[in-house]
Write a protein that binds this DNA or RNA. Structure first.
Lengths: 366, 366
DNA sequence: GATCGCATTGAATCGCTGA
DNA sequence: GTCAGCGATTCAATGCGAT
């Protein structure tokens, strides 16, 4: 059943295309539970009243000048509710969403995400290394934007490439604040007049980190506010599939040209540092069966506890007997214990963790 | 009229005291338009499930206090609406509010601030220099909290001491992200058992920046969730008046004792923001994210060894894979290797060390 | 006395798999 | 559906005791 859904979706989805239209209508036309990740950078300018929609998809009257602040928040909330709902329908159960915004709109998006049952995993701050200064000196330099990362629901098994992100950060786990420059220079797309093609083009570095961290090669990434296609460009580089939705023809044109020029990184470069959780399981008993450890042999802990190996791959130490993990936990009075790194054996006069033997077996398996 | 109000308030307000009671009731009993600034650190509504252990099996002492428990988002919203409304009534027309929270509650607070007509001036990110890591490797390190700074209404003449903040920041305009350490060491208040007196004590450096930036000497600052009184302590140091509201007797006692010890204008007691002029760390992965080096690109060593760049900022060369330093060391059979000077890339037909790219990034950051 | 190393700790929505 | 067992997982700072 699961396979069928996946296949069906893969066939029907308009992969690696930019769809013209209103993002809510387009998303509603796509099959449900078909997308791995959504990255959304919605408009937040309240002047764009004409782009707002009521929940029934009718357009809000743009000519109405009598809106007070409350009315405009209300309209913005309706718009937010509608597109987040459409987005949630097409997300796979283990899919996730990223939204980005500033203080003008991010609080309303965050609250609505929670209201709809999305489960917030982190809020991530994009700290701009070269923001525009506040010229009037009346406020703090607006030097960051906020992203929210959420799974479709509580308890969902979202993708998180912990080791790859840690590698990107030179061995230290990635934090919720990312220091990256804004999009300038030759990366910044220009129109035929030489003006910037899009007012809020996001840097590719931002998407690189998002996609390396929360998708796998081959995943389908949808961007309902595609703009000039940063999401698509980075997805293509990284060997992911994308679907873009954009209603402005000028943006679609720029994006298409841009993505056509992008070259996918070669396969070897796309393989990132794997998670240990994904490695094949090796029962401790196999070390005994293979004679790497002999029944009766004594294992030691870092702090000098000892246990004896038994023929069935269990350990015995005083009253405690059981798996390498159980006996380790019992001796340390700990809630749990990783026996693979806890127990050591003697090799060439040195104490070596038994995990080394497991690694040997795993190497043979490849 | 304005003068009269101010005088009246000054007479009636219970300045520099900690009031016992529910903050909503107490605020409703105070005269309207009488307070210059409100700083609020409300319960975050954390929803913790089981216990959490560090990798060394020690147990994390989590925030599981009764005052942080709410039945639902609806209940939390109701609470938020009520205290923000009470706060707004007692604010002077040109007064302002700061609230602080995490992704669990800050979106709901921000949206409600806007709904009530407060006017958001900035969201400010407190980037913690020493946050608690993510122990299970399932998310990003939760390394920041968010503050929202808002005036009572649009167009109000709020206080902003631009020059003072610029001076605090070594002559550079203050940004919306502040790097400050969490509250530890001697500043962290302990109870009679030597345990932390409050689970979420804020650092004085944070309040110092808030009060220097958005109040003047003599201003009245109210904190409806006073806790152990960081707001009061810093207000006293800086020659401001405070009003604290706190319903837990234990916290009030600690706060009173603490504030009694504080000396006004004691230069030595003033918190100097640590000026970190050390060279910022630049992970190699950032060169890849930023497109300065592309996945698949080949780096060379002075003696002709080669390695390929991968998307997660690691290198691969034959069997060796890992950081620029690890792979360099492996190829040279050396105990260590500075990958920044060891590895070169081609630029204009010449071989250039990748350290040049790091220097470019650092130059941008200053 | 200075230095080194080890233990402690902080607003946290912190597994997965197979029987 | 539940439940038990395997086994993966941490950074910066402070403070204390040993050298």
């Amino acid at each position: 059943m699961k396979t069928k859904t996946t296949t069906k979706a893969a066939v029907e989805l308009p992969l690696n295309t930019i769809i013209d239209g209103d993002c809510i209508e387009v998303m509603n036309s796509l099959p449900e539970s078909s997308v791995d990740l959504i990255f959304a950078d919605p408009p937040y300018n309240l002047q764009l009243k004409g782009e707002l929609h009521r929940p029934d998809n009718s357009k809000v009257d743009a000519v109405d000048d009598d809106w007070d602040q409350f009315d405009s928040f209300k309209a913005y909330d309706q718009f937010t509710r509608a597109w987040l709902k459409a987005a949630r329908r097409i997300l796979k159960p283990n899919g996730a969403i990223w939204v980005i915004g500033s203080y003008h709109n991010v609080f309303r998006m965050g609250a609505e995400l929670q209201n709809q049952g999305y489960w917030i995993l982190n809020d991530v701050v994009w700290r701009k290394s070269n923001p525009m200064p506040n010229f009037r000196g009346k406020r703090f330099t607006n030097a960051h934007e906020t992203m929210i990362w959420a799974s479709k629901s509580e308890g969902a098994k979202y993708t998180f490439n912990y080791e790859a992100l840690k590698a990107l950060n030179e061995g230290i786990q990635m934090r919720s604040d990312w220091v990256l420059p804004i999009c300038t220079g030759h990366e910044r797309l220009k129109d035929e007049n030489g003006d910037k093609a899009h007012p809020t083009q996001k840097p590719e570095s931002l998407l690189h980190r998002v996609l390396v961290g929360s998708t796998n090669p081959g995943d389908v990434i949808l961007d309902p506010f595609f703009g000039t296609g940063t999401t698509g460009a980075v997805a293509k580089m990284l060997g992911r599939e994308f679907i873009g939705i954009e209603r402005e023809e000028a943006y679609r044109k720029v994006a298409e040209k841009r993505i056509a020029k992008v070259r996918k990184f070669d396969k070897e470069a796309l393989i990132t540092t794997p998670s240990k959780r994904a490695e094949p399981r090796v029962p401790f008993g196999q070390l005994v069966e293979r004679g790497m450890l002999r029944p009766g042999e004594v294992l030691t802990s870092p702090r000098g506890k000892t246990a004896k190996v038994r023929a069935d791959g269990t350990l015995i130490s005083g009253e405690a007997r059981g798996s390498i993990h159980q006996v380790g936990a019992a001796l340390e009075s700990a809630p749990s214990c990783n026996g693979w790194t806890y127990w050591h054996f003697r090799q060439d006069g040195k104490k070596v963790p038994i995990d080394l033997l497991r690694q040997q077996i795993r190497a043979e398996m490849n």
